[in-house]
């Protein structure tokens, strides 16, 4: 293999992208779910970002009309069937301790309200930043005596969706200071680092080129307020690490493992770029 074209290739690719027409995102569209739950899909960029962005906005805005419609009604939204499945799992006894999630956490609507909005977050006992999936597996292993779920598997993403929908409409509000700060800074560094044969960083596309087309895709800001997301492409729920893994692979780099400290740091940082947007999960995207 000859040396990668590196910067030349990136420059050409990005030049082509930059000159392409801005696709027809309906800039004025509003996201109201079930006719009564209004989502904040555009808002002022959080302070830590205000030097590079004025406004942050939801990936919902970048999708075609037909896709946007799918998220506006809980019976059109295919992600909601997995919320139903997870509700069954919530109530099901699993593991050596003969408990279900409900045994400790009662009704998910009451006890999980607001939880998703602040994840990933610092866990004092564990001494690290934890994602929702980590916490779910921690409960399963240590409280229920049950087997851990695969980090990006269907059961996990469904449970993430069930928990996330209890925060739907609430603003994303992850802490970036205090004990979480060094993890946040690690994530920020990753976000801005070029990687892979294509030498692309997250920022190259999602900060410098959102609104432009990359081939036939309409680039968003890469926010994760809508995760876990039902993607039309694979007709299932996807969580942040699954998507990160794909994105890194697409830069032709050796990708990271879902659940790894690298992705936890990246998820914390990317989540913080959306502080202020409503939790939209489960969202519908391409």
């Amino acid at each position: 293999m000859t040396k990668p074209m590196g910067n030349t290739l990136t420059a050409i690719a990005l030049a082509a992208v930059a000159f392409s027409t801005v696709a027809a995102a309906d800039e004025a569209a509003d996201l109201v779910i079930n006719g009564d739950q209004e989502m904040v899909i555009r808002t002022a960029a959080p302070e830590h970002l205000s030097d590079v962005l004025d406004e942050i906005n939801s990936g919902w805005l970048y999708r075609k009309d037909e896709t946007q419609l799918l998220q506006m009604d809980d019976f059109d939204n295919p992600g909601m069937i997995f919320v139903d499945l997870a509700q069954d799992a919530w109530n099901a006894v699993d593991g050596s301790e003969e408990k279900s999630c409900a045994s400790c956490h009662d009704n998910v609507e009451d006890t999980m309200k607001g939880v998703r909005a602040v994840y990933p977050k610092w866990n004092e006992t564990a001494g690290e930043v934890r994602t929702l999936a980590h916490q779910i597996n921690d409960c399963r292993e240590n409280q229920m005596g049950a087997e851990k779920w695969k980090y990006t598997g269907g059961k996990m993403t469904a449970m993430e969706a069930l928990i996330s929908v209890q925060s739907r409409g609430m603003p994303v509000d992850v802490a970036i200071d205090g004990p979480a700060q060094s993890t946040w800074e690690q994530g920020k560094e990753m976000y801005y680092s070029r990687t892979g044969q294509l030498e692309l960083s997250c920022a190259n596309c999602h900060e410098e080129n959102f609104g432009n087309m990359i081939r036939a895709d309409h680039l968003s800001q890469g926010q994760i307020n809508g995760f876990p997301v039902y993607r039309l492409k694979n007709a299932k729920l996807n969580n942040a690490h699954a998507r990160f893994k794909g994105c890194v692979r697409d830069t032709r780099a050796e990708t990271y493992k879902p659940g790894s400290p690298d992705f936890v740091a990246l998820e914390l940082y990317v989540a913080s770029r959306g502080n202020g947007l409503s939790v939209e999960a489960p969202s519908v995207r391409n």
């Binding site: 990668p4 074209m5 290739l9 050409i12 690719a13 082509a16 992208v17 392409s20 087309m213 081939r215």
Partner: peptide, 18 residues
């Protein structure tokens, strides 16, 4: 291949249609 990527980047149709 890098050649094809280059060709795409050099002004070939941005919307690639099956």
């Amino acid at each position: 291949s890098r050649r094809e990527t280059l060709a795409l980047g050099l002004g070939a149709a941005v919307v690639t249609v099956m």
